[in-house]
Write a protein that binds this DNA or RNA. Structure first.
Lengths: 258, 258
DNA sequence: ATACACGGTGTATGCCGTACGCTGTCTGCG
DNA sequence: CGCAGACAGCGTACGGCATACACCGTGTAT
């Protein structure tokens, strides 16, 4: 699917690693991959991924749409480059010593990266993503935290992967919920939901809705958001998931040490 | 962002719960939400999310494009409906008794749902997703597994959420990797990568590449895929993540019990 | 000096979602 | 019983998108 140059690597990977030999002949270039990618990121940060069109990127650089194609072979390729560039973790990150705190800090780092460029989550991360420089660096940083742990490499890689996926998922969820102020449901809507989410059909989850639905009569007047995802903030969900993983990891280490 | 009817609920939610009162006057309807959604799912299953266009869906039903808009107010709304419909878990799922095995089985159920309709992952799941019937049912089922656990509701909801996100992430990863046969990198490409992924710059991860890169000289002849994501299959990554979470959960319960 | 590789541009194509207005149909009200 | 009006399905049209292609001017390797 992703185009490969004759090197066997997707072109986006080549570009991101700076392995793209600059042409020798012809006029000097007025643009660069870096500038194009930066322009795309700026646009995405300001107005979302939907605002990133070839035309918009080119215009913001003062060039025509088609000029971009001298540097990037498709929009998808540009998006891949933007994705990697946006996920750059600090070069010299100071992480706490112990692996527990270290992993926690690393997770926070990854999460912050997603948080400051949430649109990244809207880009399908193909197989090439793993080969990109910043993705590589993030993985290396994470593995460094677990370096001294008595665990085989596979499990370490798996852990890093799971934690980073957790971070991504939570940021995505966070964005979704923020998009319209919580699960903004008015009292009227909540009452409607209460009619179908009955204890008979949903024995375990109905409770979460019933309490609030009952309170929202006609008199409350205001259109309060009634449901808020179980009153547990996304922040805490992230912390919980992370804690579970860390605890689980600790136990696994302890068991293997025997 | 998501349009709300005067009930305060997004229209997609209303439709999915069957709360959309059918019109009284006028000709009888030749279509239905169900048929449209089913047609969309069929298309997505067969040719991917990209093949789902209003025109294609309409054509597959023998109607014109614009007729769909009598049932669905936008393509996004249709995608939301497809997402929920595709994630239906079996109504009468028999899950193992113990919460550990039960949670594992539930996770497998969720994962299978994503697996049989991977395109669902390409649909941004907005805040309304949580209010959709099948999403609700999945959550209820999951909470049922944890019902007897001595844990506050918030933590249970959090667990369910984290596990389902894990399942989604792993299926997505799985799809990405399968898209082009592993991280299909030829020996030549791997050698190139070896030049930039040096032990100095990537002390912890370089090892994963070095071993293979060294082997791939000119003589090997074949263009073998050299890197495969750390030799750990996505299947195992999922199992690992799940184990970590379950172990972590067990510990949390034990600790709170004192 | 010159051939030609290459940068930037303008134009054109085809696909997309969807707004709008039309025609014909069915129903609840008078 | 009849009719106004709500509603189904359709055709047309528009604006936006990614991108193929032909063109011209530029600068370097020969």
């Amino acid at each position: 699917m992703a185009e490969k140059s004759e090197t066997g690597l997707p072109r986006a990977v080549m570009i991101a690693w700076g392995m793209e030999e600059a042409p020798q002949r012809g006029p000097s270039r007025g643009l660069s991959h870096e500038r194009i990618v930066a322009a795309g990121i700026e646009l995405a940060d300001a107005e979302g991924l939907g605002a990133v069109t070839m035309q918009a990127v080119a215009r913001s650089l003062g060039f025509t749409t088609m000029s971009l194609y001298r540097y990037v072979s498709s929009k998808d390729e540009l998006l891949l480059l933007m994705q990697d560039a946006a996920l750059r973790l600090p070069e010299r990150a100071r992480l706490p010593e112990g692996w527990r705190e270290g992993l926690r800090a690393w997770a926070e780092l990854v999460r912050d990266a997603y948080r400051s460029h949430p649109w990244v989550l809207g880009i399908p991360r193909g197989q090439s993503s793993v080969l990109m420089p910043n993705s590589m660096w993030a993985a290396d940083l994470g593995l460094g935290v677990l370096a001294d742990l008595e665990l085989d490499m596979e499990a370490k890689v798996g852990t890093i992967l799971v934690v980073s996926q957790l971070a991504a998922s939570m940021v995505e969820l966070e964005e979704d919920l923020a998009a319209e102020g919580l699960l903004a449901t008015t009292a009227a809507g909540s009452a409607l939901l209460g009619e179908v989410i009955t204890p008979e059909r949903f024995p375990h989850i109905a409770g979460l809705f019933a309490t609030n639905a009952r309170a929202g009569g006609e008199e409350s007047g205001e259109d309060l958001p009634v449901i808020d995802g179980g009153t547990l903030g996304v922040d805490d969900e992230f912390g919980l998931g992370l804690s579970l993983i860390i605890d689980g990891l600790e136990r696994r280490v302890a068991r293997s040490r025997v």
